[in-house]
Design a protein around this nucleic acid. Structure first.
Length: 390
DNA sequence: AAGGCGGGGTT
DNA sequence: AACCCAGCCTT
């Protein structure tokens, strides 16, 4: 008998539809996916050896980040912090540096904090059950369920973007991810799967893998889907209609007026760049960058130079556009003439910018610190041009 | 419940 | 140019 969604009887208190796979159908669904996964699974770094720590690190990196972008940073991270105690004892600066380029840098600090909780409250052993994992910083119900089920075999459900897409198509369920009813339906369905299949961790990972490689958002490869016979969207040719599109946040534009100061203490020494640490909260929290002013609108050149405590016009101004999901940032990069560096007071400059924490750092060792990609790039450009001139 | 949080690949 | 991604935390 093919796998089919069965509607549960109406709940008097909650009239919202609750769909469940009955146990027999869940087992059939899981069996098909298990067989498929065992021959179709990609070779990924965190799958080669399974343990709680590797799962914790990989799942943190994979939050809202595509698999291909995580492979290299994961290997780097595991080399530098091979176990949870090494991570817990590491500095936040090193952790942020290793997170370079991954984005959503708060994840790095939360992972660091989680490692310290594990060291201090769990005898240095990564918890193995979803309920305890859920108490760790940066670990939500998806991450807790993923580690508990995939590594330790717990019957814990997981729903990520892939799972939601597979379920929505399989059952032609209307609604959009992020919508309360839709999300609750997904978690209910995931629970009925986890509770009834032989290997819940394998099936959980298989559903995600299916969503990532076969049941793709665009151009799904239904011909190679192990559950195509039971998929309602496939039957009606409506895979493109599920799930419904998520409502998008509006994007705002910000202007960052950046001063890239480069010095050489002697003519032969390597160049150094002046860096400040960003505030505790907000964009690129506690990461390093050249001093800057941020504003909604572009500041006049005179305003910038006076606020920067510079008496003369800067030599050049480079415009760099950087876009993220939530904002467009236009960097206006000013590079003071090295010969004029003595004409302003570094302390006055930093006071004017409200940047209490600063340091001169070797420009060829930026990989020791956490810097955003655009800041790293603009420093590299400035250093290479200053080297050309000398 | 809604908004903030990166960056790059894909369409 | 717009979309999305192995989500989570804060307000």
């Amino acid at each position: 008998m093919p796998v089919q969604i069965m509607s549960a009887q109406e709940d008097i208190i909650s009239p919202s539809e609750e769909s469940l796979l009955d146990p027999r159908q869940a087992r059939s669904f899981g069996e098909a996916l298990t067989l498929w996964f065992k021959q179709a699974a990609r070779d990924l770094p965190w799958r080669r050896q399974r343990d709680g720590y590797r799962a914790l690190v990989s799942e943190a990196m994979l939050q809202q980040t595509q698999v291909d972008r995580v492979k290299e940073p994961f290997e780097r991270f595991m080399t530098r912090f091979p176990d949870v105690l090494a991570l817990a004892d590491g500095s936040e600066e090193d952790v942020l540096a290793l997170w370079q380029g991954l984005g959503y840098y708060r994840r790095a600090r939360l992972l660091h904090a989680a490692a310290q909780v594990i060291r201090d409250q769990h005898h240095g052993v990564v918890p193995q059950d979803a309920a305890t994992l859920l108490t760790l910083p940066g670990v939500g119900r998806y991450t807790a369920g993923a580690i508990a089920s995939i590594v330790f075999g717990e019957r814990a459900p997981i729903v990520d973007g892939n799972v939601a897409r597979v379920f929505a198509r399989f059952a032609t369920r209307s609604g959009r991810p992020g919508d309360r009813d839709f999300d609750a339906w997904c978690w209910t369905l995931a629970s009925s799967v986890a509770l009834n299949v032989a290997e819940p961790g394998v099936v959980n990972e298989a559903i995600m893998e299916l969503g990532a490689t076969v049941c793709r958002k665009h151009d799904p490869d239904c011909a190679h889907c192990p559950v195509r016979e039971a998929c309602l969207a496939r039957a009606s040719g409506e895979t493109a209609l599920y799930p419904e599109v998520r409502v998008r946040a509006t994007r705002t534009t910000m202007h960052h007026h950046v001063l890239v100061c480069i010095r050489r203490t002697t003519s032969v020494s390597a160049p150094e760049v002046l860096l400040v640490q960003r505030p505790e909260k907000g964009l690129w929290a506690r990461m390093w960058q050249p001093p800057s002013l941020e504003s909604k609108k572009e500041l006049m050149s005179g305003t910038v130079t006076s606020r920067f405590a510079l008496r003369r016009e800067p030599l050049d101004l480079q415009r760099i556009e950087h876009r993220t999901t939530h904002r467009d940032i236009i960097f206006h990069v000013t590079r003071p003439d090295v010969a004029r560096m003595t004409e302003f007071s570094e302390a006055d400059l930093l006071t004017a910018l409200g940047s209490p924490v600063s340091r001169w750092h070797l420009a060829d060792r930026l990989d020791e610190l956490g810097l955003s990609n655009p800041h790293r790039r603009m420093i590299d450009v400035a250093v290479s041009e200053s080297t050309d001139q000398s």
